[in-house]
Design a protein around this nucleic acid. Structure first.
Lengths: 142, 142
DNA sequence: CCCTTTTTGAGATTTAGTCTCAATCTAAAC
DNA sequence: GTTTAGATTGAGACTAAATCTCAAAAAGGG
């Protein structure tokens, strides 16, 4: 499996863009985290690591990462978007506990297949999808 | 089937709140629209109808409607939330065309069943869910 | 009518995200 | 190594969604 940085660089080349040290730092930060994180978290972690990058660049780079297919946006019921990398592991979706905030990942091939079927029936070309199930987790449902 | 206003009023009573004319106007506006709409649209439509209600009240009431289960939030890939009523028709989810912005509703009982199964396996008590499939619609996929 | 609680609106505030623009960097061309 | 055009960045202004504050108004129960 190729490294993310390589894939990203390749993608950037097709747009005549370069893999700068800022973009690399953001990429590393996203791939260093398992699961979802928000734009501002990336900004703050980079600041802590003394790899300062402006907020504007964080958002701009996240946009590029999403376009490249390495990262996706996920909506977890909050008023801002989360990001998570998609490369190097199978697709998953989320159970979100509305009490404790815990996010549980799940993946189900059968659901994916049925979704593909729905798209086919509508003549729709799927690029991505997200499923969120909101409710109470095991510990909170008493 | 009971009317929405009745259900809402009942819900409000359990919280010792009243169904005021402002809340009723917002409820009517939401149920007058098929499909999704955004908070500001409700605010503007009410203004046009000379049933002025402040933005604060629109947001507050939408929160109550969501809590009551009559309305749900949907994320359609934009930077703000959409709302749609859930009462009086079967559950559906969305195909979102990332080119023309069209939103196609679909519903699939088999997918729902599998989702319920996933929840059961995790000991998760589902309250709601949303599925979004992003891609190109029939007319945009060429 | 009185009192308490609920409700509202106007506008301030917060927060996520985008935009602007001048300064800097890069890479290729000479 | 210079030049030059285009890419890139950061700081902070800006925008837009959503929330909060607080005083005034309305409602409900005695």
């Amino acid at each position: 499996m190729r490294k993310e940085a390589e894939i990203f660089e390749e993608y950037l080349k097709t747009k005549k863009l370069n893999l700068t040290k800022e973009r690399k730092a953001i990429l590393n930060q996203v791939f260093a985290t398992n699961g979802h994180l928000e734009a501002d978290e990336i900004f703050l972690r980079l600041k802590k690591d003394k790899k300062d990058v402006s907020r504007a660049t964080v958002y701009r780079t996240l946009g590029l990462l999403v376009d490249s297919g390495l990262v996706r946006k996920v909506y977890l019921g909050e008023d801002h978007i989360h990001y998570e990398h998609t490369h190097g592991h199978t697709h998953h979706d989320h159970l979100v506990c509305i009490k404790c905030g815990k996010v549980i990942e799940f993946s189900d091939k059968k659901i994916e297949k049925l979704q593909a079927l729905v798209c086919q029936e509508s003549g729709f070309k799927e690029l991505s999808h997200t499923v969120q199930i909101f409710g109470y987790c095991k510990d909170c449902k008493e």
